[in-house]
Design a binder for these strands. Structure first.
Lengths: 349, 349
DNA sequence: ATGAAAGCGCTAACAC
DNA sequence: GTGTTAGCGCTTTCAT
C-alpha cells in the first residue's frame, strides 16, 4: 500500500501530503481531512489505518494550504519600535502567552522609529494575511489608505495622530504629577526635568503633568529647569553632566523616560554625586530589571505586561467575532508608582 | 471596466485578488503576475493600465497563495527559551536585522525551558513551512524523528545531546577560567562559586573552567566552595544570603550566569556587604544593560549579537543553496571579558 | 508580448 | 460513513 508514495516523490526531503496519506491508507483525502480536523465521522478501522499512515509518513499538515483555503493564518502580527527594548519585551511576552493559548503564532517586526519601515511592516503583515496586528506606532501619521482595512489592528503604547484604531496606552499625566509631588514632599523646591523630544503624546503628557504639578504645588516657575537631553543614553548622560557642571545641582531631578533616567544616573555617578544625599532622583520607567541598583529608584513603572494582555484579549475577541473594522477606542493602563530610596524615603526592608 | 469587481465582492472588506486586477485592467492574470514579479515583458500601455488598477483596488498580493505555489514562505522560525530575556533579545535583534535585509519575516516562539513546548514549537513552525529555523534548544534530547528533516535548522547557545545540527555557541571553559584567574590575581584565595544546575553544557563547561583554574593556579580545593543556588533571582538571593550568614565571607565570589550574578548582588546589598571592599565579585553575563551599576562588574559578557548574526548568515546560505540536510557542525563565539571595578581594579575613567 | 490552463495542498459541500 | 470535486490566489509552462 505504501510503496506508491515512496516512488512518487523524494519523500525523505519533501514532506508527505494529505494525498500521500490517503493513498497509503487506501482511503480518500476527504476522509483523512475529516479525521485530522475532527469534522465528521470516521470508522474505527479506517481511523486506525489513517493514523498509521500519518505516523509512517511523518505527515505534517501544510498550514499554508490550509490558510489559503480557510482565509485564516493563525498568525498575529506584532510591530514594535525595537525588539530588544527590555520594557517592550515584557509586552511581547504577555502577547505571546495569550497567542499560544489560542494556538496562534507571532510574526514580529520592528521599525526602529522609522515610519517608512513601519509602513513596510504593515504591508508585509498584510500580504502574509495575518489575522490581526498589534503595533507600537512610530507616532507619525499613518497613511490610512495604505493600511490594511480588513485586518483588525490594535495600537499600543503610543497614540497615532487622528487615531482611528483601538488602542491601549499608559496613563501619563497623573503619574507624572505624582512623581513631582513625591519630590516636593521630600523637600525639593528647585527641580531639574530631564526629558526627550516632545514629539509623541507620551512625552507631551508627562510634560503636561509636570506643568500641572508646578502650578498646583506652587513651585516657583523661575527655579524649575527643563533640559531636553537627547535620545540615546550616552548623549543624555553627556548633556546632563555638562548642565550640572555649569548650572550646579538642583534639589531634585525627574527624568521622564527610561533613557533619560539611565543617562541621568550615569552622569550623577560619573560626577560622584550622591543620591539621595546630594540630590533626590525620580523618573519614569524601569531601568533595573535585575533589582540590583542602589539606591532603589522612585519611579513610575509602566505595566507593559498588562498592556500586552489587554491588547491581545481585545484583539482575539475582535478576531473571533469577525469585527474586522477598526474604530477609535482607547484603553488606559495605570503605571505603578514604585517608591524607592532615591528621594530620601526609607526602605521598608 | 472596474465595476465588475465592485459588484462581485465586498471589496472594502475582502482585499482584491490578482483576478480582480486583471479584470479591471482588461488583461489576463498571467500578465499581472508577470508585471508584479518582473518576470517576462509587459508593454508600456498595459503596464500602465495594470498599475492603475492595482492602485485603485489597493491590491496586496496574497503571500499565502504565493507560498503555496512556490513552496517558499520567506519566513524564518525562531525558538527561544524566553522572549523577554534581555540577553536573548540582542540575538533576536541581530537575526531580525539580517532577516529584514533579505525580506524575510520572523515567527518567534518561546518554550520556557519546557521540552514539550519545544517540540510543539518545532511542529508549528514545520506546519507553517518556514524556510529555516534558529533555535535555542531546551537541552533535552530532541526526538529527531519528529523534527523537520526538510527544513534547515541552526541551534544556538545551547548544545543538544547527540547533536546533528549546525550550531553556534559561546566559548565557556576558557572564559570561566579567566574570571577565576582574575579573582586570583586580585588576591583571592578562598572563593565561592554560585552556579545553577549542571544540566546543560553551558553550566558544565563553566564548571570545568573553574576546576581547571583551581588546579592550574594551585588554589587549595578545601577552601573553595560551590553553591548551587537555584534558577530564579529571588531564591538565588536567598540561598546566597543564608550561606554567607552561616559560613561567613569568602575573599571572592564568582557567579556563573546572569541570574546567579544578579541574585548574588542582591544578597550582598541586602547584607550591606561592600564590593570590592569586603569581597571581590566576578561573573558571567550582562546584568546591567543601562550601565548604571556601581561598582562596575568584572564579567564575561556573551556576544549574543554575534551569535545571532552568524547563525542567520549560515542559515541564509543554506537556504539559498538549498542545503536542506542538517549535519553536526559547530561555530564558537568568544565572550568579551569586561574588567570592572568589582574585583578591585581601578576604573580607567 | 499576452493568454490559457494546470496545479500547489488543503477543506467543505455534496453525492452516494 | 466515505468518496468526489470545486476552488482558495497565485505562478509558470506552453501556446499563440
Amino acid at each position: 500500500m505504501l510503496y506508491k508514495c515512496f516512488e512518487k516523490r523524494e519523500w525523505w526531503l519533501i514532506s508527505a501530503t494529505i494525498k500521500d496519506v490517503a493513498a497509503a491508507a487506501g482511503v480518500s483525502v476527504g476522509t483523512v481531512s475529516k479525521l485530522i480536523n475532527k469534522s465528521g465521522y470516521v470508522s474505527d478501522k479506517i481511523r486506525e489505518r489513517v493514523l498509521l499512515a500519518i505516523t509512517l509518513l511523518n505527515y505534517q499538515p501544510n498550514a499554508v494550504a490550509r490558510s489559503l483555503k480557510q482565509s485564516k493564518t493563525h498568525l498575529l502580527g506584532l510591530i514594535v519600535d525595537d525588539i530588544s527594548n527590555p520594557s517592550i519585551t515584557k509586552m511581547m511576552k504577555s502577547i505571546e502567552d495569550a497567542a499560544r493559548n489560542k494556538s496562534y503564532n507571532l510574526i514580529i517586526c520592528s521599525h526602529n522609529n522609522d515610519s517608512d519601515q513601519e509602513m513596510k511592516a504593515f504591508q508585509w503583515l498584510q500580504e502574509k494575511r495575518v489575522d490581526g496586528i498589534i503595533a507600537i506606532p512610530t507616532g507619525a501619521e499613518l497613511d490610512e489608505l495604505q493600511l490594511p482595512s480588513s485586518i483588525p489592528i490594535m495600537t499600543v503604547e503610543r497614540k497615532v495622530k487622528y487615531n482611528r484604531f483601538y488602542s491601549v496606552v499608559h496613563e501619563n499625566i497623573h503619574s507624572s504629577f505624582s512623581l513631582v509631588q513625591h519630590l516636593y514632599i521630600h523637600g525639593c523646591r528647585r527641580l531639574l526635568f530631564i526629558h526627550g523630544p516632545l514629539l509623541d503624546h507620551v512625552e507631551q503628557e508627562r510634560h503636561q503633568g509636570i506643568r500641572q504639578a508646578i502650578g498646583q504645588l506652587g513651585l516657583d516657575p523661575e527655579l524649575q529647569i527643563f533640559l531636553e537631553a537627547g535620545t540615546d543614553i550616552a548623549s543624555i548622560s553627556g548633556a546632563v553632566s555638562s548642565h550640572l557642571g555649569s548650572s550646579g545641582l538642583p534639589e531634585g531631578i525627574y527624568a521622564t523616560n527610561r533613557l533619560s533616567l539611565a543617562g541621568t544616573i550615569q552622569a550623577l555617578w560619573s560626577m560622584d554625586i550622591k543620591v539621595p544625599g546630594d540630590v533626590a532622583v525620580a523618573g519614569f520607567g524601569d531601568i533595573d530589571p535585575y533589582g540590583i541598583l542602589r539606591p532603589t529608584l522612585t519611579a513610575a513603572k509602566e505595566d507593559f505586561n498588562e498592556v500586552g494582555k489587554i491588547a491581545a484579549e481585545i484583539l482575539f475577541e475582535r478576531i473571533e467575532n469577525k469585527m474586522r473594522y477598526n474604530q477609535p477606542k482607547e484603553f488606559i493602563v495605570a503605571p505603578r508608582l514604585f517608591i524607592g530610596t532615591s528621594c530620601g524615603s526609607h526602605s521598608h526592608s
